[in-house]
């Protein structure tokens, strides 16, 4: 006996199995990201004054990524609709765009990550602290671009503001902003870290949230790419079931996009 309702709807629920399954799975995903968002709120509310930055991230790439995902959400629906209209070519076209969008998203995200990992936070032996991007490193010294310096105990909130200013007004040197690169001898350094998740709680939750989200993007993209490429053979043999699979993977994709719609403001804007 075969398992019923794999491709037809059960009359009283009006759903096929996989659709029930994906909705349930998404419910658990809601709890997953819900718990992470709650953690975010708790950490932020509990942060010591001056230790939660705003505007640390560049809004630009985040905004572009938001657009990219919204576009992909549209194309993923169009792809499914094309199948329903029996237009396999159009399906290929739209779903191809979805996959490209996913790739684009991941690429942009990895550039953002890279800029954080190359951001150096250096505490000098004289009690000053320098923030800047690493441009050169030797056995004796390092060179940082757009360096900003202040007393070591400065909180991340004020530092973030100062760094932004240094980067945007690098040409208008003034105050303690240095517009040229700064060379620091290793001997003068007390402690040196980069802006990875270990740097502070904000970056920790930033990397965790976006990292987990990126994993979802990659997983979703792999599934979608599979059904776009080798998996699409199924269209010839089981068109109904194939359309269902596209619908289900599309639902997952919408969810991933939706999560980003929440992530973007809380991490980049607020």
């Amino acid at each position: 006996m075969e398992v019923p309702y794999t491709d037809t709807n059960r009359p009283d629920t009006g759903l096929y199995n996989a659709k029930v399954g994906i909705w349930l799975f998404l419910a658990s995903e809601v709890m997953l990201f819900g718990a992470l968002f709650s953690a975010y709120i708790l950490l932020r509310v509990g942060a010591m004054p001056g230790h939660w930055p705003t505007g640390l991230l560049d809004v630009g790439p985040g905004f572009v990524n938001t657009l990219v995902l919204i576009l992909s959400s549209v194309t993923v629906v169009m792809a499914w609709a094309s199948l329903k209209l029996n237009d396999f070519k159009k399906f290929k076209f739209y779903q191809g765009i979805t996959v490209i969008c996913a790739l684009l998203f991941v690429v942009i995200k990895s550039f953002e990550y890279k800029s954080k990992f190359t951001h150096h936070d250096v505490i000098l032996k004289d009690g000053m602290r320098v923030d800047g991007h690493l441009v050169e490193e030797t056995d004796e010294f390092i060179v940082l671009s757009h360096p900003v310096s202040y007393p070591a105990e400065k909180g991340i909130r004020e530092r973030a503001v100062a760094i932004k200013e240094a980067e945007h007004h690098a040409h208008e040197a003034g105050g303690d902003h240095h517009h040229e690169d700064r060379k620091i001898m290793l001997d003068d350094i007390e402690k040196r870290t980069t802006w990875g998740p270990w740097a502070n709680t904000y970056l920790a939750i930033y990397f965790t949230l976006t990292g987990l989200h990126a994993l979802h993007v990659i997983a979703g993209a792999l599934v979608i790419a599979y059904f776009w490429g080798p998996g699409s053979k199924m269209w010839k043999t089981h068109p109904e079931q194939f359309a269902n699979r596209i619908e289900v993977s599309g639902l997952f994709w919408h969810f991933v996009d939706l999560v980003w719609i929440f992530l973007f403001p809380i991490l980049y804007l607020l």
Binding site: L24, A27, S28, E29, M31, L32, G34, A35, L36, A39, L43, G196, P197, W198, N200, T201, A204, I205, F207, T208, L212
Partner: peptide, 24 residues
């Protein structure tokens, strides 16, 4: 289905604390 994901988050954040040096 609904209660396990928060623990998964709890475990994940602790994993980050243990291996990635975060301070959740």
């Amino acid at each position: 289905l609904l209660a396990f994901p928060p623990l998964e988050v709890g475990a994940l954040l602790q994993l980050m604390d243990n291996v990635a040096g975060t301070s959740f």
